[in-house]
Design a protein around this nucleic acid. Structure first.
Length: 594
DNA sequence: GCCGTTTTCGGCCCGACTGTTTTCAGTCG
C-alpha cells in the first residue's frame, strides 16, 4: 500500500472526527501523521518490513503507529468504519465546498439532516438554510456559488503554467507604484512541481492603492476577499492569487511565513516558543513577561527582527534554509547542525544528455540543437532520437542511426566549441529487451533507455521489465522512470526502490526529466535515490531549441530532492564525463566478451 | 494523539477576512 493511500485514510478519519466534534488537537494529530507519511521518501510498509520503528517518525506515537500498521494489514481502520456508521459517508464531501468547514457541516447535518451535496442544493432552494443560526442570505448565496465552482477550476497548476500567469501580474503590480518590495512566496517560491494557488507578498507603506490595483487587474474574474492588507482573487485561468501587504520592517518574516510550507513554519515557530519568542509574519518578538499569549498585540514585545528573512532563522539558531527544502523533511535539524546540502544551481550544469532532432519528433536540426546548447554555455550535448518502436515519433532503425552518425560528424565540424555526443533514446520493449541491436548501441556515446508503451503492466511485471533492461551493459541512462504526465497520466506501477538499488549496482544513471509536465523523478524519489547513492542526470528531453530552457525546472526539482552538484552526471566537466563514458564502454566490451 | 533536560500533564503556530454577531465564531491559509 502506498504512503499516500494510508495518508488519505488518516486524513479522512481526521475529517470525520472533526465533524463529530472531536477535540481539535486529536484531529490535528491525524493530519500531521498523514503529512509525515506523504513526505516520506520510502514506503512505510517497507520500513515496517525492515523492522524500523515508526514511532521515530515525527508526529507518530504509539497509537498512530498501531493505526498505520492496521491500515497496511487490513486496508482500513476499525475506528473509521465505526465512525462511518455514526456519520453518513457522504458528509465529508461537504467539506470540499469553499466556506463550509466542520462546524457548519455538522450543523447542516444535525439540524437539517443534510448529508450530501445534492441534499444541500435542495435545501438551499428552500429557505431552510438561511434560517439556521450563523447562516444568512449571503452565506446561502456563497455556498450556492461554491457548489457551482466545485471541480470547475483545475486543482493544481503546473509550475510552468503558473510562471506564465504570474509574470505579467507581477509586472502590472510593480507598474502601479507604492511598492517597495515584491515577491511571489508559497509553493511557487518553493518550486513545487505544481501549485494550488499563488501567494504574492508586497512591502508598502501605502497598501490601499496596491490592493485596489490588484483587484482591477484585467485578468481577474472575481474578487473573493479584499481587506486592508490581504486580498484574494480568481483569475480567468482559474488560478487563485492571494496578495498580502505589510510594512517593510515585517517583509522578511512575512516572506518566510508565506513561503511555508505550513509544516516547516509550525516547526520553526515551535523553536521560537521554546526560546520565549513569538514568530509571526510581523516579525520575531520577545514575549513580554507575565502576559498571556492571547493578550499580546501582534507587534508587542521587543522586536528581534523581521525585515530580512534571515532574521527568522537567526532568531532560532538555524542556518538559512533554501525555500525548496522547507517541507519539514529534516531541513530544520540539518540547519541547526549546519549540515544543509550545498544545492545544485543551474550554472553547475555542463550539458544536456537527452534531446531530439528533426530525425524523429524534434523541431530542430542537429546543428541547431548543438548551437543552442553552446549558446547556453554547455560543454557538451547528446542527440538521442527515438528508436523504431516509437512509431508516432518516427523512431529510427539501426540503419537510420548509422546515417545519423554521419550527420553528427558533419555537425561536429560546423559547431565548434561543444562536444556533440551520438546517442539514442532506445525503447525498453515489454519483455525488457532493447529496441536496437547491440552492435548499434555499442557505437553510441550515450544510450538513454525508456518505457513508452504497454504501461499498464502490474508492478512486478514492470519492475522485472526495467530491471532486465538495466542489466544490459549498453545503457547509460534510464529516462523518465515512472512515465507520469502531470495532471494527465498517472505514473505506471513500478518498484523504484528495487530499480534504484539495481541502478546503483549496475551504475546506470537515472534521469530527472525536466519537461514541466513530466518532472520525472519527483522530489521524494530524488531524495531516496540520493540516499541510496544513485547518480542522477538532469535532462530536458527537448524537442526544440526553446525547450532547452526547461533545464531550470529540472534544477528546481533536483533542489527539492536535496541534490548537490556531486550527485549529478551532467554537472561533470567534459573531460571527466568522457572518462566516465569510456569506462562504461569498457564495461560493455567486457560483458560482450563473456 | 503527540511530545518533553524547565514538563509524563498540559501544552499544542498565528493571524486576516467575512458574515452575522451586538462582541464573535467559523473558515482559511
Amino acid at each position: 500500500m502506498e504512503n499516500v493511500e494510508i495518508a488519505h485514510i488518516l486524513g479522512k478519519y481526521a475529517d470525520l472526527l472533526e465533524i463529530q466534534g472531536e477535540g481539535l488537537f486529536r484531529v490535528l494529530a491525524y493530519r500531521k501523521a498523514a503529512r509525515t507519511l506523504e513526505s516520506l521518501s520510502q514506503q512505510v510498509a517497507q520500513l515496517l518490513a525492515e523492522g524500523k520503528d515508526l514511532e521515530e517518525l515525527p508526529g507518530i506515537g504509539k497509537s498512530m503507529a498501531g493505526h498505520i500498521q492496521e491500515i497496511i494489514k487490513t486496508g482500513t481502520l476499525k475506528g473509521l468504519k465505526k465512525l462511518r456508521k455514526e456519520i453518513p459517508t457522504t458528509l465529508d464531501e461537504l467539506l470540499e465546498i469553499e466556506g463550509l468547514g466542520p462546524k457548519r457541516t455538522k450543523q447542516l447535518y444535525e439540524q437539517l439532516g443534510i448529508s450530501s451535496i445534492k441534499e444541500l442544493e435542495r435545501a438551499l432552494d428552500s429557505d431552510k438554510v438561511d434560517s439556521l443560526r450563523g447562516f444568512g442570505q449571503k452565506s446561502v448565496e456563497k455556498i450556492r456559488q461554491a457548489i457551482q465552482n466545485l471541480g470547475k477550476r483545475p486543482k493544481r497548476f503546473k509550475l510552468l503554467d503558473a510562471d506564465q500567469l504570474v509574470r505579467p501580474l507581477i509586472e502590472y503590480l510593480r507598474k502601479g507604484g507604492n511598492i517597495e518590495q515584491l515577491e511571489v512566496a508559497g509553493s511557487y517560491r518553493r518550486r513545487m512541481e505544481t501549485v494550488g494557488d499563488i501567494d504574492i507578498l508586497a512591502a508598502s507603506d501605502n497598501p490601499q492603492p496596491v490592493m485596489q490595483r490588484f483587484q482591477s487587474y484585467p485578468e481577474v474574474e472575481r474578487v473573493v476577499a479584499a481587506g486592508a492588507t490581504r486580498g484574494t482573487v480568481i483569475l480567468r485561468s482559474g488560478l487563485q492569487v492571494d496578495l498580502r501587504i505589510l510594512p517593510r520592517r515585517s517583509y522578511g518574516s512575512a516572506l518566510h511565513y508565506f513561503t511555508g510550507s505550513k509544516a516547516h513554519n509550525v516547526a520553526v515557530r515551535k523553536l521560537g516558543v521554546e526560546r520565549g519568542l513569538r514568530v509571526s509574519e510581523y516579525g520575531v518578538f520577545r514575549v513580554p513577561e507575565g502576559k498571556r499569549a492571547e493578550d499580546v498585540g501582534v507587534e508587542e514585545g521587543e522586536r528581534i527582527g523581521g525585515a530580512k528573512e534571515e532574521d527568522v532563522f537567526r532568531a532560532v539558531n538555524m542556518d538559512s534554509v533554501p525555500p525548496e527544502l522547507r517541507e519539514d523533511r529534516g531541513e530544520i535539524q540539518a540547519a541547526q547542525k549546519h549540515k544543509l546540502p550545498d544545492l545544485i544551481v543551474l550554472e553547475d550544469i555542463r550539458g544536456d544528455l537527452h534531446m531530439h532532432s528533426k530525425w524523429t519528433d524534434g523541431n530542430g536540426t542537429i546543428i541547431e540543437m548543438a548551437r543552442a546548447c553552446k549558446e547556453r554555455g554547455y560543454q557538451y550535448c547528446a542527440i538521442t532520437d527515438h528508436s523504431k518502436a516509437v512509431r508516432v515519433a518516427g523512431g529510427l532503425s539501426a540503419e537510420d542511426f548509422k546515417r545519423q552518425r554521419e550527420e553528427i560528424e558533419d555537425a561536429r565540424t560546423k559547431v565548434l566549441g561543444i562536444t556533440i555526443f551520438t546517442g539514442c533514446e532506445v525503447d525498453i520493449l515489454p519483455d525488457g529487451s532493447l529496441d536496437l541491436p547491440d552492435d548499434v548501441l555499442e557505437q553510441l556515446d550515450v544510450v538513454v533507455a525508456a518505457v513508452h508503451a504497454k504501461m499498464d503492466m502490474t508492478q512486478s511485471e514492470m519492475t522485472k521489465r526495467v530491471l532486465k533492461a538495466l542489466a544490459h551493459p549498453a545503457i547509460t541512462i534510464l529516462a523518465h522512470p515512472t512515465g507520469r504526465l502531470i495532471n494527465h497520466r498517472e505514473p505506471f506501477a513500478i518498484d523504484l526502490e528495487e530499480i534504484f538499488h539495481a541502478a546503483k549496482r549496475t551504475q546506470v544513471v537515472v534521469e530527472l526529466d525536466a519537461q514541466p509536465d513530466r518532472l520525472d523523478l519527483n522530489d521524494l524519489h530524488l531524495f531516496r535515490a540520493r540516499e541510496i547513492g544513485v547518480k542522477i542526470a538532469i535532462n530536458t528531453d527537448a524537442h526544440s531549441t526553446g525547450q532547452l530552457r526547461f533545464m531550470r525546472y529540472g534544477i528546481d526539482q533536483a533542489r527539492r530532492g536535496w541534490l548537490e552538484k556531486r550527485h549529478v552526471l551532467n554537472a561533470m566537466a567534459q573531460p571527466q564525463l568522457e572518462m566516465w563514458l569510456k569506462q562504461r564502454r569498457q564495461r560493455f566490451d567486457k560483458a560482450a566478451a563473456l
